Amino acid sequence: MAKEKGVILAEAMTIYHMPLYKKLKEFIASGMLGAVRMIQLNFGSY
């Protein structure tokens, strides 16, 4: 139903749809970081 309505269905994992992750994906795809072997981060928000 979500696909039919053109919306994202997510439960407790909404951080994957934040602009920060889209930008990180662009950086990785561009190759400017070199070969990415591991990503480790902490994320927090108010």
Rank of each mutant, 00 (worst) to 15 (best):
M1L: 11
M1K: 11
M1E: 10
M1T: 15
M1D: 14
A2Q: 09
A2R: 14
K3R: 10
K3P: 00
K3Y: 08
K3G: 04
K3N: 06
E4Y: 09
E4N: 14
K5Q: 14
K5P: 01
K5L: 15
K5H: 08
K5N: 09
G6D: 08
G6N: 11
G6V: 12
G6M: 10
V7Y: 07
V7P: 01
V7H: 02
V7M: 11
V7A: 11
I8S: 07
I8E: 14
I8N: 12
I8L: 11
I8Q: 11
I8P: 13
L9M: 06
L9T: 02
L9W: 12
L9E: 11
L9N: 07
A10P: 05
A10H: 11
A10M: 07
A10R: 13
E11Q: 15
E11A: 13
A12G: 08
A12C: 06
A12V: 02
A12H: 12
M13C: 10
M13G: 07
M13A: 13
T14A: 09
T14G: 08
T14F: 10
T14W: 13
I15H: 12
I15D: 09
Y16G: 12
Y16P: 00
Y16K: 04
H17T: 06
M18C: 08
M18S: 12
P19E: 15
P19C: 11
P19L: 12
P19Y: 15
P19M: 14
L20I: 11
L20W: 05
L20E: 01
K22A: 07
K22H: 10
K23D: 06
K23M: 14
K23V: 14
L24T: 03
L24S: 09
L24Y: 04
L24M: 15
L24F: 10
L24W: 06
K25T: 12
K25W: 01
K25C: 09
K25F: 05
E26T: 09
F27T: 04
F27C: 05
F27E: 07
F27K: 08
I28P: 00
A29Y: 00
A29H: 05
A29V: 06
S30C: 02
G31Y: 01
G31N: 12
M32Q: 10
M32P: 00
L33M: 05
L33I: 01
L33Y: 03
G34S: 02
G34L: 02
G34V: 03
A35H: 13
A35F: 04
A35K: 15
V36H: 02
V36D: 03
V36M: 02
R37S: 06
M38V: 02
M38L: 06
I39V: 15
I39T: 03
I39R: 02
I39W: 00
I39Y: 01
Q40W: 00
L41C: 05
L41I: 00
L41R: 02
N42S: 01
N42W: 08
N42G: 01
N42R: 06
F43I: 04
F43G: 04
F43T: 03
F43H: 13
F43L: 10
G44E: 05
G44D: 06
G44V: 08
G44K: 08
G44S: 14
G44R: 09
S45K: 05
S45R: 09
S45F: 13
S45H: 02
S45W: 13
S45L: 12
Y46N: 08
Y46L: 15
Y46F: 13
Y46S: 06
Y46M: 05
